[in-house]
C-alpha cells in the first residue's frame, strides 16, 4: 500500500514536472535563445489551457463549448491561440527595449487574467471550466495517471528534440547574435524584428501546449490556477537554475525546482499549527531566495549554455560565453 502510494505520488510529480518542462522549454526560446524577458508566461499558459478546454468539452450553459473535439485538436487550438496572442503582442512590443518588453508583458498577463475572470460567457469566470476530458482514460483499470504521464513525456520529448535540432540551425544562431549584439545583426542586413517575432511566437506556442496539457491533466481550470507565482515565476526560476539557453538545462531545472518546491512542502508541513496557514508564503519566500542565490552565485545555471561550434561563429561565441553575464541589454 505504502509503495503504491509512493508510486502514485511519483507519477503525479513527474506529470507536473513534465508540464513545467514544456513551459520552461518555451521560455528558453524567448529568454535563453533570444534574450526576451516575458514576465507574462502565465498569460500564454492560461490561453493555451482555456483554448483546449473550450474546444474539447461538452456543451455547457456556463461557458462557450460543445465542440467536443479530440485531445490533439485541443492542443492544436491551444498552440494556435497562444501563438496568435503572441503575434499581436509581439507586433506592438518587440520593437521596444528589453526592459520595456518585461513591463509590457506583466500588463498583458494582467489583462488576460482580467479577461478570463470577467468574460463569463466564454470562460465561466471565476467558477472555471470543469469536466475537461482526459485522453486515454478508462482504457485500463487503474493506469490512467500513468498513461497520461506517458502522453506528457511524449510531448516533452518531441518538443525537446525539435528544439535541440533547431538549436543547431542558422535561425537560432541569428537569435543568439541578436541577443549579444543587435546592431551588428541589423547591420548584416537581417530583419531583427522578424526574427524576434518568430522567436516570441514559437516560445509562446510551446507555452500554449503546456497550458493545454495542464487543462487535460487537472480536468478543471479556473483563473486562480494561473496566478503569476505558478504560471510565471516558478518557470523563470526553473530556467535560470537549469541554465538559460540550454534545453537540457530547461528540463533539469523543471524537475529540480519542482522537486525543491514539493520538498519545501514536507518542510512546511512540520511547522507548528499557527504557521501552517502561512506555509505557502514561506515556500514562495524560499523560492525567491533561491532565485537570488542562483543569480548571484551561479548565473549561468547548473548546465550552462553550450553554443554549437560552427566555424563562422567561432569568434562571436567568445563574447557570449555566459548567457546571463554576457547578455546584452536589448
Amino acid at each position: 500500500m505504502e509503495l503504491a502510494g509512493l508510486l502514485t505520488y511519483f507519477i503525479f510529480f513527474l506529470t507536473v514536472a513534465g508540464i513545467y518542462a514544456v513551459l520552461s522549454l518555451g521560455l528558453n526560446v524567448q529568454w535563453g535563445f533570444t534574450g526576451q524577458i516575458n514576465i507574462g508566461v502565465a498569460a500564454f499558459f492560461a490561453i493555451g489551457a482555456y483554448s483546449s478546454a473550450i474546444v474539447t468539452t461538452e456543451a455547457s450553459p456556463f461557458h462557450l463549448g460543445g465542440f467536443e473535439l479530440p485531445f490533439l485538436l485541443g492542443i492544436l487550438a491551444a498552440m494556435f491561440a497562444s501563438g496568435f496572442l503572441a503575434f499581436l503582442v509581439g507586433l506592438v512590443t518587440l520593437k521596444l527595449r528589453g526592459d520595456y518588453l518585461a513591463i509590457a508583458s506583466i500588463g498583458i498577463a494582467e489583462i488576460i487574467r482580467l479577461f478570463l475572470k470577467n468574460e463569463g460567457w466564454l470562460t465561466n469566470g471565476v467558477r472555471g471550466i470543469p469536466a475537461i476530458p482526459k485522453p486515454l482514460s478508462g482504457l485500463t483499470e487503474s493506469g490512467d495517471a500513468l498513461l497520461f504521464l506517458l502522453v506528457i513525456l511524449a510531448f516533452v520529448f518531441v518538443i525537446y528534440m525539435a528544439l535541440e535540432r533547431l538549436y543547431q540551425s542558422p535561425w537560432v544562431r541569428v537569435l543568439r547574435a541578436i541577443r549579444v549584439n543587435e546592431d551588428a545583426v541589423q547591420a548584416a542586413g537581417k530583419n531583427v524584428l522578424r526574427f524576434r517575432l518568430e522567436a516570441f511566437v514559437l516560445g509562446s506556442v510551446i507555452m500554449g501546449v503546456g497550458g493545454g496539457l495542464y487543462a487535460h491533466f487537472t480536468t478543471f481550470i479556473s483563473p486562480s490556477a494561473f496566478d503569476p507565482m505558478f504560471g510565471t515565476f516558478l518557470v523563470w526560476v526553473m530556467l535560470i537554475a537549469g541554465g538559460s539557453g540550454n534545453n537540457k538545462g530547461a528540463l533539469l531545472g523543471a524537475v529540480i525546482i519542482w522537486g525543491v518546491w514539493s520538498g519545501t512542502e514536507i518542510f512546511t508541513s512540520r511547522l507548528p499549527e499557527m504557521w501552517v496557514t502561512r506555509a505557502s508564503a514561506i515556500r514562495i519566500f524560499l523560492v525567491g531566495a533561491l532565485l537570488e542565490f542562483i543569480l548571484i552565485f551561479r548565473p549561468q545555471g547548473l548546465l550552462p549554455e553550450k553554443p554549437p561550434k560552427t566555424p563562422g561563429t567561432a569568434r562571436s561565441e567568445k563574447s557570449g560565453v555566459s548567457p546571463a553575464a554576457g547578455r546584452a541589454d536589448t
Binding site: G35, I284, F285, A289, L291, L295, A324, D329, T330
Partner: peptide
C-alpha cells in the same frame, strides 16, 4: 552583488525580491 551584471539580470533579481517581500508580508 549584481551591480556589474546587466540591467536585465538586475530586473529579474528584482522580480525575485518582489516575491520575497510579498510572501514575507503574508507570513
Amino acid at each position: 552583488w549584481l551591480r556589474s551584471s546587466t540591467p536585465i539580470i538586475m530586473l529579474i533579481s528584482s522580480v525575485g525580491a518582489a516575491l520575497m517581500l510579498r510572501s514575507a508580508i503574508q507570513v
